[in-house]
Design a protein around this nucleic acid. Structure first.
Length: 795
DNA sequence: AGAATGGACTTTTTT
DNA sequence: AGTCCATTCT
């Protein structure tokens, strides 16, 4: 039957009562769901919270719910808003809905991340808040550059207080809707005072630049809605049904937006898992999901507890992990899936060894089970860990792909090119002006820029305007000419923005900028890669320009600022995936490795200090483990490079606190033994005390066979020479001696005059600056400078 | 003004 | 080990 309503997307009021036929059709769409999922899909009116464990089909449920709404004709597509965590999730959801109800019926649905949806909204409403629709979007890199600039002018020393710290504090303040004035009033310590000094000027700088940072994309809509209730009313009317995926990761601003928008119809349904909340550092507030029922007393709570993804053993481990946290919402995960193989714990000598074991295991499983590269993912805590894994995979000839790290749009050459494009669209964009004006070098140095800036300050002009009057600004004729050449080039292209197709304009402009010529002249392999990247960017512009009617350059730039690296993950690309645990959320793989399970790394030593952060790390572990469908490997290394030197490591407490020893096996198939009382003397870490053999600052290479003859049975590299005692190979462990005879080395028990007895977890630095992280039984973890701490080695 | 060199510092996770 | 920055050299 022909349904035409999807073709009149903006007609707000006329949705007919569903006929019996419509309802039958809607029911047919959700026939494949389980009982709880179907109930969630059917509960279309009023607030609903779907509490769902990993692998329980929550996205599927959300998708079917939307399809159900459409089929039952409860709403036009344009009346449905779905907010997801990544663009990828939104894209997949849209694809599935298209499959369910057809492309015509799905057309006009609003789906995307909070940031992209509200960027779109701000584009429409920009003039209400004094921006133009062509505003630039500053990512963290842009933001930190801008801040650094401001720090110079406001006398804050970037050595003592890093732009990153300031950025993160300001971001927090914006999330909480704290204004610069309020912040200034509340500032309590020197750091906060410094932030307070910068916060106001930072906000003004963004405004002058017609630019928004990520937080603004959420904060400005809130302000807009507060100041213009009529605009809010319009969107409340438009979006009759609101869906939020990964609700546990929403921050205060997102919470407020959801509340404002849902106020009229109250049809807010959220999906989330408090056990998977891993973005508190970014302002995510787990309370949003924990107190949903309080915020919306009418709300119906539906639990999805059946897991369709993982084997029983994997699930059992996951459950045992999360049990160590307090205060989760009640959930009882279960699965009909097979029992599955044991979770395997890989123990390695060094990070290199760890990577090699992973690589070998991948090859082995591929042969044994005929798995493809795409079936594997290696997850780790920090991006820096990817290097050793990459090397091993490259050596083994296994194609891989890295998600995250520096993504395409963060590369220097791409940001340079983007700066030109942004500037042409939005000449007020000062950060882009500063970036582009002397890249490639065209004789406009620091002094010239200083002159321009003080002229701008004195006259109240923007930097761009000042740059257009170089002589009045007092520049030498040579400098003035250089600046003029630049401004003319930008202005010439800016004049054509409205009339020229985006790709053509971009191509011409980049050509005129000489960016590519400079790279060609450099003629190094790296420069040629960069050149290729710029070509790729121009292709992306072209592709975008041909994609639709509103495909302007300015729209391209805004969109591009908001793509995450995971968004580009393609399943048809047959490669092993390497990524951080954070990036893995929402994904699944047949075989998963969680690497680097070491104290100080996972959990990170910073996080281990604070129980709250420690719980978040644990949830992160939980997220990683539950990505696995069939096989799960956990690994740790006994030494790892950090700050350019190898440091000893002990395995993560996460391995030993877990009450599921029976699901874990070692590599050789033996039972896994958790270490209880790991901070007691007899902890079986396998560290023997090193003896000083030649003077007071002897180093000992890591002859692991000596440390624990049993743990490492077969040689990995039978042909490799045995590490000599003098070797400075990469398995070397840093050892520092105090005045006495005995080494202070990670794993060793020490006595402190006031803190009592404890255990060394990590060492950092060298010489007088050597700092030990020690876990004391009574007072917890402390960082101590060895020079001062007078530690006595016990035993 | 710009390139080259040497030293300090670094690593949390990201829309 | 790599990156960023300040200083020095051209």
């Amino acid at each position: 039957m022909a349904r035409t309503f999807a073709l009149q997307p903006d007609d707000p009021n006329t949705v007919a009562e569903p006929s019996q036929a419509d309802m039958n059709e809607a029911e047919a769409l959700i026939a494949g769901l389980n009982e709880a999922q179907a109930e969630a899909a059917r509960t279309t009116e009023g607030p609903v919270m779907i509490v769902a464990g990993p692998g329980s089909g929550k996205t599927r449920t959300l998708t079917h719910r939307i399809a159900y709404l459409l089929a039952a004709k409860k709403a036009w597509p344009s009346q449905i808003l779905a907010l997801t965590f990544t663009n990828k999730a939104a894209r997949e959801m849209r694809e599935r809905i298209v499959k369910l109800v057809g492309a015509e019926q799905a057309k006009g649905l609003w789906m995307g991340t909070f940031h992209s949806i509200f960027a779109r909204l701000l584009r429409r409403e920009a003039e209400h808040i004094g921006f133009t629709k062509d505003f630039s979007i500053y990512d963290t890199d842009d933001t930190e550059r801008l801040l650094k600039n401001l720090m110079g002018r406001y006398g804050v020393d970037p050595k003592k207080i890093t732009p990153r710290a300031v950025r993160s504090r300001i971001s927090g303040a914006k999330n909480q809707m704290v204004t610069p004035q309020e912040y200034l009033r509340l500032a309590a310590d020197p750091f906060e005072e410094a932030v307070a000094k910068l916060y106001g000027p930072y906000v003004e700088a963004l405004r002058r630049a017609n630019a928004m940072d990520f937080d603004d994309l959420l904060a400005w809509p809130i302000r807009l809605f507060e100041q213009h209730p009529d605009v809010l009313a319009q969107y409340q009317q438009r979006w009759k049904y609101l869906h939020i995926d990964e609700y546990q990761d929403t921050n205060r601003a997102q919470y407020l937006l959801a509340k404002m928008l849902a106020a009229k119809h109250q049809n807010l349904s959220v999906v989330g898992d408090d056990a998977q909340s891993i973005y508190a550092f970014r302002g995510a507030d787990i309370q949003n999901i924990l107190s949903f029922q309080k915020d919306y007393p009418e709300a119906k709570t539906i639990r999805l507890e059946q897991n369709y993804r993982s084997t029983q053993k994997i699930l059992k481990l996951a459950d045992a992990i999360i049990k160590n946290n307090t205060g989760q919402l009640d959930k009882d995960l279960w699965t009909d899936n097979a029992e599955g193989d044991h979770v395997v714990l890989l123990e390695a000598l060094s990070e290199r060894d760890e990577a090699q074991k992973i690589e070998r295991t991948i090859r082995d499983l591929q042969i044994r089970y005929g798995l493809g590269n795409r079936d594997f993912a290696v997850l780790y805590r920090t991006n820096a860990q990817s290097r050793s894994l990459e090397e091993a995979l490259r050596r083994g000839g296994i194609p891989y792909r890295i998600v995250g790290g520096t993504s395409f749009y963060q590369r220097r050459e791409i940001k340079d090119a983007l700066a030109y494009l942004r500037l042409v669209v939005n000449p007020q964009d000062e950060a882009s002006l500063v970036r582009a004006i002397n890249t490639p070098t065209r004789g406009i140095g620091a002094k010239t820029m200083e002159t321009l800036r003080s002229y701008a300050n004195a006259t109240g002009l923007s930097l761009w305007q000042a740059a257009q009057q170089p002589e009045e600004a007092g520049l030498s004729s040579r400098a003035a000419k250089a600046v003029e050449g630049f401004t003319f080039m930008i202005a010439r292209h800016a004049a054509k923005v409205e009339t020229t197709p985006a790709d053509e304009l971009a191509r011409e402009l980049i050509q005129a900028s000489n960016l590519m010529q400079a790279l060609r002249d450099e003629n190094t392999p790296e420069a040629l890669v960069r050149l290729e990247n710029i070509h790729e960017l121009l292709n992306a512009v072209a592709e975008f320009a041909q994609s639709g009617e509103n495909a302007t350059l300015s729209a391209f730039l805004q969109e591009v600022s908001l793509v995450a690296d995971v968004d580009n993950l393609q399943a048809d690309d047959n490669r092993v995936t390497l990524m951080t645990l954070h990036a893995s959320k929402g994904l699944e793989f047949k075989v998963v490795f969680v690497a680097g399970l070491e104290e100080g790394l996972f959990p990170l030593s910073m996080a281990a200090q604070d129980p709250k952060e420690l719980e978040e790390e644990r949830r992160l572990f939980y997220v990683g483990v539950t990505r696995a469908e069939e096989l799960l490997f956990l690994s740790f290394a006994r030494s790892r490079y950090r700050y350019g030197e190898s440091q000893g490591a002990i395995r993560s407490r996460f391995l030993d606190e877990v009450q599921a020893e029976d699901v874990i096996r070692t590599e050789s198939g033996r039972a896994f033994q958790a270490k209880t009382g790991r901070f007691s003397l007899d902890d079986g870490d396998g560290f023997t005390q090193a003896r000083s053999t030649s003077g007071s600052r002897t180093r000992r290479t890591a002859d692991y066979a000596q440390i624990d003859p049993h743990y490492y049975r077969q040689s990995l590299r039978p042909d490799a020479p045995k590490p000599s005692r003098r070797s400075t190979g990469d398995d070397e462990r840093q050892i520092v001696y105090d005045e006495g005879e005995v080494a202070i080395v990670p794993g060793v028990r020490v006595q402190h005059p006031s803190f009592g007895s404890g255990k060394v977890i990590a060492l950092e630095g060298t010489g007088d600056r050597t700092t030990a992280t020690v876990f004391f039984k009574d007072v917890g973890q402390k960082k101590l400078k060895l020079k001062f701490a007078r530690l006595q080695v016990l035993g």
